[in-house]
């Protein structure tokens, strides 16, 4: 592998985000509340996994390796996804709130990234943006239906919201590496997106009869490879077969 550059590291971060969430969403396949939701979940998972492949493939050209080497041969400490993406799927409320948070963020993010001075990233962003716009339509709709559904669904949604609330901060943090890339017109300034995201969330929560959690907290560490305990187990399962037969093709 070639020495990583700022750009390859950045692309890898976005790839890990997509990979880890795609893997989580795919856990709903054959486990969803009905066939319609099952099909929708598989679809969203496929979009994320497709995005991960595009980004890994791009990073692989810079690092002189392969997409599978990047996805299957790195340990949890080397994964740099933001924490919210890796959390276990939980109940349908948890997955829905997480999806809505990330979809809302992604639309804002990729709307900007289409203008990246890096042509390959801009092209990937353009394809991704189309998908994110569909995703947020679905997850927002589910937020409202489940938030304003029954007493039980309302309680579950509010609980999920409380459990995810402190992970949102990481979405808006810019570190040195990304700041440098922003100056070159390659990356996006995350802090700039917070206001629009807050507004989108507030607007939805009101319609869904849900409340902004009373207590705030902050957990971060994904970009530095300091993850939840869950990621390692997820990667064990995901990487085991690939690692058991080194050097073969499938």
């Amino acid at each position: 592998m070639t020495e990583p550059s700022n750009l390859s590291t950045y692309v890898l971060r976005l790839a890990d985000d997509a990979m880890v969430l795609g893997q989580r969403i795919s856990e709903w396949t054959s486990n969803s509340p009905n066939l319609e939701e099952d099909i929708a979940n598989s679809n969203v998972a496929l979009d994320y996994l497709g995005r991960a492949r595009m980004l890994y493939a791009y990073a692989a050209t810079m690092l002189n390796t392969t997409e599978d080497e990047l996805a299957f041969m790195r340990d949890a400490r080397q994964y740099t996804n933001l924490l919210m993406h890796e959390l276990p799927k939980g109940d349908y409320a948890f997955s829905t709130v997480r999806q809505f948070f990330i979809d809302s963020f992604d639309v804002l993010y990729f709307e900007q990234l289409v203008n990246s001075s890096d042509a390959q990233l801009a092209a990937i962003a353009a394809k991704t943006l189309k998908e994110c716009r569909y995703h947020v339509r679905r997850s927002r709709d589910l937020m409202v239906r489940l938030g304003d559904g029954t007493e039980e669904s309302h309680t579950r949604m509010q609980t999920a919201l409380n459990e995810l609330w402190g992970y949102r901060h990481e979405l808006f943090m810019d570190d040195e590496l990304e700041t440098e890339l922003q100056q070159q017109g390659i990356a996006i300034t995350r802090t700039d997106l917070q206001q629009a995201w807050d507004a989108a969330i507030n607007d939805c929560l009101a319609e869904a009869t849900l409340s902004i959690p009373e207590t705030d907290w902050t957990v971060t560490g994904g970009r530095a490879g300091v993850h939840s305990e869950h990621l390692g187990h997820m990667l064990d399962d995901m990487q085991c077969l690939h690692r058991s037969y080194p050097g073969v093709t499938w």
Binding site: S26, I39, S42, L49, R53, W250
Partner: peptide, 18 residues
């Protein structure tokens, strides 16, 4: 699906099950 041996195989299998 969760442990398919490559990204390509994972995506193809997930599409199939879908």
């Amino acid at each position: 699906i969760s442990s398919a041996p490559s990204l390509y195989r994972k995506i193809v299998l997930l599409s199939k099950v879908q």
